[in-house]
Design a protein around this nucleic acid. Sequence first.
DNA 1: CGCGTCATTGATGTGCATCAAGTGGTGTGG
DNA 2: CCACACCACTTGATGCACATCAATGACGCG
Lengths: 240, 240
Amino acid sequence: MTQQTIKVACSNCNLRELCMPVGLSDDQLKRIDDVVAIRRKIKRGSTLFRNGEAFTSLFAIRTGFFKTCVATEDGRDQVTGFQMAGEIIGLDGIVNDHHTCDAVALEDAEVCVMPFDRIEELSREVNALQNHVHKIMSREIVREHSVMLLLGSMRAEERLAAFLLNLVQRLHARGFSQSELVLRMTREEIGSYLGLKLETVSRTFSKFVEDGIVEVKQRHVRIISPDALKRIVNNQQACH
Amino acid sequence: MTQQTIKVACSNCNLRELCMPVGLSDDQLKRIDDVVAIRRKIKRGSTLFRNGEAFTSLFAIRTGFFKTCVATEDGRDQVTGFQMAGEIIGLDGIVNDHHTCDAVALEDAEVCVMPFDRIEELSREVNALQNHVHKIMSREIVREHSVMLLLGSMRAEERLAAFLLNLVQRLHARGFSQSELVLRMTREEIGSYLGLKLETVSRTFSKFVEDGIVEVKQRHVRIISPDALKRIVNNQQACH
DNA sequence: CGCGTCATTGATGTGCATCAAGTGGTGTGG
DNA sequence: CCACACCACTTGATGCACATCAATGACGCG
């Protein structure tokens, strides 16, 4: 099992504003340092947790990129999300004390391990932490609403456009380019997330290239016209 | 605005085991009574809350049946869930202090209003309540995962079969029949939830009737062979 | 260099959407 | 109490978006 542990602190972590509530006192921050006691390294392709495993901790992604996926007994599976630095995974495990999906590293990754009983304990005392936990879970619920809207009512082009815009927006919030990105997942994984087959994802990319909306070279994508993507998502005519 | 308030208590509510944590002391129960201070009646067709409205409270459904739906600017919308007695709605509002979906009563309904700041306050002191809130939110996340799986990878028959089984299972947990149910929503609303058009929902119902799996008379549905429905969901051959 | 993985592109098939007509149940007002 | 209007639903005919099947091409790695 690929696992390695490192002791570290949130108080001087540059992702703090993504994971943690703002406006904490030094004392509160130090107490949170004690909760986030350990880091763990995950090799590309291996799992952080699997469906059925006991739930003990939430994980804050420090570096790397994950996918989460659910499966049915008959072998169908579906990517439910892609997660990047500063995002929290493992929330699915709270309700039944075991995980109900797999979390797979799409590149070498490092996560902060946050034992959930410690989080509950501390959030009873630090109001900002309590509210922060609630907001993180609510945010995930709202995100999933928008995925349901996408899966239930959008066409292939709209889905891929929404996907690209969402990805680049989250990367931009982390200091990356607004227009260039490197996909960490395969066409098949994108398709699974968007409810499409990989061929359809590939064809839709090609169509966007033809239309001059993006440039694609393998997994490198450059968005030439974000406005065109937005118009596609919003189901509007191309106005040229 | 259709709104009427009534003062009541959880401590003698017959839905308590659905909404509330178990194993509370009398003292803790009494304090929760103070949080769940008022009830509100909602007429069929009117909204409990709307997208954009300020979020202040969660709602526990006491009687009646709701749908929640999200919408895009360009007019598309999607039912994200159907909720019945004992279930909690409004979780979407926590993250940004305003609601991001509409909650519409599909029949005359009554809800318990639970101001969220009071919930946070009390759950700092009552561990069981804190954990209960976390579990409710996690359960919603897991439920949405299964809807994503449904929308992303199931065919029409599988979707409708899964929908019926889920509905009847929840009704059964509330003391209703395992085999008979009355749909509170239109074919169009079912379709919106399942990512299908109303005609497809209707045709799929007809197919199930032809196959002797269910009887349908208007919104009255009797499930003749739950096993056949399960086989459809699990994508198995009809065995005989 | 050769193999495996991932991606692209074309040809064909199909499940569901769309368009359209008709039915039945319900509520309303004369 | 009946006639009418309206809405939800059903069913049929047709079309289309995406799936499926298949062949080929581009990297990357041992």
